[in-house]
Amino acid sequence: MVTFHRPVDLAEALQVRAETGAIPLAGGTDLLVRHRNWAGTLPRIDKPVVYVGHLQELRRIDISGNGSGPQMTIGASVTYSELLDHPTTPQLLRDSIIELAAPGLRNVATLAGNICNASPAADAACALYALDAEVELAGPSGRRRLPIAEFITGPGRTALNNDELVTAIHLPPDNSTVKFYKKVGTRRANALSKLSLCACARIVDRTVTEIGIAVGAVAPTIVRDRDIEHHLQNTAPEQLALRIPQTLQQYAELIRPIDDQRSTAEYRKHTALALIEQFLTHELR
């Protein structure tokens, strides 16, 4: 029978995790759905569970300012609703949360849970790629920080060690001037993604100085490629337009979707490329 640990603080949670390898549980909207069983029975989980949703250390949103704008530190047990209620939450993240879940899920689900689930279709994770988020982990030997793309190592796989917990997600200042979020879901609300595009750019004096493009549900992990982006930076929008065919070809190499119960590989690829093109041509003006 599955064991449930309810530690009093992060230190105890880490200790439980280190000693038992217990699975962290925050909102439960992935874990308890995946292991659901039958009415009147316990979920089928073959490891102990350590609940972290109540830990005050993980329930905080901290804002620290530097010269370029507010930096956001989102505790691992902060819910989506709390993020939506917070004025600093970047628009891209906000948009992805609104489309990904109904209120009843937003009230318990967490960003940290979404990235630990490491689904290539995780919409909020896609926004984190575009926003250059970093994941903060705590373990017996202290804390470390990883860029989101290094934290998620494959479908359902992360760099989280068995004795570590995600403690926070750090968002650098969002200085983008253009933000574009588009999710193609199975319906209009409370839907899983067929694919999604999270993109942002900074345009200063008619020059695209920074650009970030993340595409979800089209490859084993979320697609973001800094080399391609690099070629698009420091150009005027009209020059950038000339590079679009080549850019799309480059993305076409990276976008390797599958057929599944929600969509087809063909549709996903076609639409992902069409959305990137839309972003580059229509949004970056």
Binding site: L32, V33, R36
Partner: peptide, 28 residues
Amino acid sequence: GEGECGACSILKDGRIVNSCILAVGMIE
């Protein structure tokens, strides 16, 4: 039983949640 339909909705600390995907240990 998978948090999709909302028939099991209740309020937890004033906010709507799906009681079918919460473990009772989480609501102490």
